[in-house]
Computed example of a mutant assay.
Amino acid sequence: MSGVHRLTGVVRPYAWGSRTFLAELQGRPAPADAPEAELWLGAHPGDPSTVAGHDGPAGLADVIAADPAGQLGAASVDEFGPHLPYLMKVLAASAPLSLQAHPDLDYARKAFAAQEADPSLPRNYTDANHKPEMLVALTPFQALCGFRDPAVSASVLESFEVPSLAPVVAALRSGVAGLAEAVRLLLTWPAEDRAALVAAAGAPLARRLAEHYPGDPGVLVALLLNHVTLQPGEAIWMPAGNLHAYLEGAGVEIMAASDNVLRGGLTPKRVDVDELLRVLRFEVLDDPILPATELAPGVSTWRVPIRDFALYRLELSGSRPPTPVPAEGPRIILGVEGDAFVAEGHGTPVEVTAGTAAFAAADAGPISVAGTGTVFVAAPGL
């Protein structure tokens, strides 16, 4: 199966999802019957997309497995193996997600191998890959991303006038070197005292998070992070070891094809504190917002220091000629507004409207997009 084909993703119904955003994006009745959190577009085994073909729909993972070189291109296969190296999502959050971080590639490989060799170890990893990720806001989007200045966090915690927090405040007053100890103290807080501790946190963000996760010490850990609000088109970049959480809003997310997540609170799920501390990068992130780079009129990207993925935004105008897509290899083209048409050479264009997508195999060669509105294009960052 070569060329460009319509791609159908899978909607995941996590409890924190929105009942309206994805339904309205795709022109379905809203509100939906249940929360709709993520639209997955890719070949991840957790929920692979399907590709329309002459013989009917087929799973994208199966299409790739049948012809890795044609679908992915030699460069992608050589570097990442016979698998799509990225996963694209539309994320829609109406409630806070868990605090989380992801391992780097070397650590993920070693930890997954150790886990597979010893069944007695905790099942923290689902694969041997890293999971750096980036999100570009489609609506105003609130997130926690990276540690802020520990002195600022110390002042916030001190303002609660909780004597038992003194060791945490002291650790933060020692600067970046004390971040790990501050996080460890909070996440290992005695279970019987957690509810009182969280209730005493008077910051507006803490009160908001405690409504969803009462008694969760992650509420206090969240106060050590940058709280940012993205405007549509702004992005945040979350490399390995970056502690982060999405709070509210919708955006296009792209990540390496992995499902390795280590949680750090704001969740009813298990938190492996020791493993999380081994993975986290304890450093101050001064500015979590990643600026866009304009490549051509109406074409922009966000530069990240990894090769698993690249993301492009194309702003289309019906008065302009077709816009060439500045990427090769396996590409996913997602519409978020308007009516676009994706074409290879002189092939029949594939229509992409809001909430729908197309897949262009590597052997399709150069592709272009015409029409009106906005599309995002995911590709390897080779």
Rank of each mutant, 00 (worst) to 15 (best):
E248Q: 12
G202I: 13
W16N: 01
P366A: 10
A113M: 14
E315Q: 15
L135H: 07
V336A: 03
P232M: 10
F160R: 09
F147Q: 06
D104S: 06
E36A: 06
P13R: 01
L187Q: 02
Q71F: 05
Y213K: 04
G218I: 00
A52T: 11
A343I: 12
A240N: 10
P232Y: 15
D149S: 08
A30L: 06
D106T: 08
A52P: 03
T353V: 13
H54L: 14
A257H: 08
D47R: 10
A113D: 14
P204W: 09
S155D: 14
T126Y: 13
V325P: 01
R320S: 13
I236W: 00
R320K: 11
A378F: 03
W16K: 01
T139E: 04
G355N: 04
A370L: 15
S164Y: 15
L295H: 10
R320D: 11
T293M: 12
R263D: 02
D216T: 01
D339T: 07
D274E: 11
A23C: 09
P13K: 01
V152Y: 02
P57W: 14
A170W: 15
P214L: 10
S153D: 03
D118M: 10
A201R: 04
H244W: 02
W302V: 05
E158V: 04
V369S: 00
A114V: 05
L314N: 08
E234Y: 13
A379E: 06
G241R: 01
D274Y: 00
S164L: 14
A378Y: 03
V325T: 05
N260T: 08
G73Q: 02
D216N: 04
P150I: 00
A114Q: 11
V377Y: 01
S368W: 13
L121K: 10
P13Y: 02
A206C: 06
L266G: 01
A170V: 15
G355P: 03
W237F: 12
M238Q: 06
A117I: 12
V11F: 01
A113Q: 12
L157K: 04
H212G: 03
P330L: 04
G202W: 10
E344T: 11
L7A: 02
L91S: 04
P35Y: 10
D272S: 09
A250L: 07
T8K: 07
Y213V: 07
D67S: 05
L187G: 00
P214K: 12
A360W: 04
I289V: 12
L25H: 04
P45L: 10
E328K: 05
T20P: 09
P29V: 12
R281V: 01
A203D: 13
D55V: 13
A370S: 14
L277I: 02
I367N: 07
V90R: 00
A191T: 06
R109D: 02
F376N: 10
T50E: 04
I367C: 14
M238P: 05
G42S: 05
L144V: 04
I254C: 09
L266P: 06
A370E: 13
P288I: 11
M238D: 03
V273G: 00
F376T: 15
R281I: 01
F141N: 14
P132G: 03
D62Q: 13
A362F: 13
L197V: 11
L99G: 00
G46C: 10
M1R: 04
T126W: 12
V336F: 06
A240I: 07
P268S: 08
G371R: 08
F21Q: 03
Y312H: 07
Y213W: 05
A170I: 15
L99C: 02
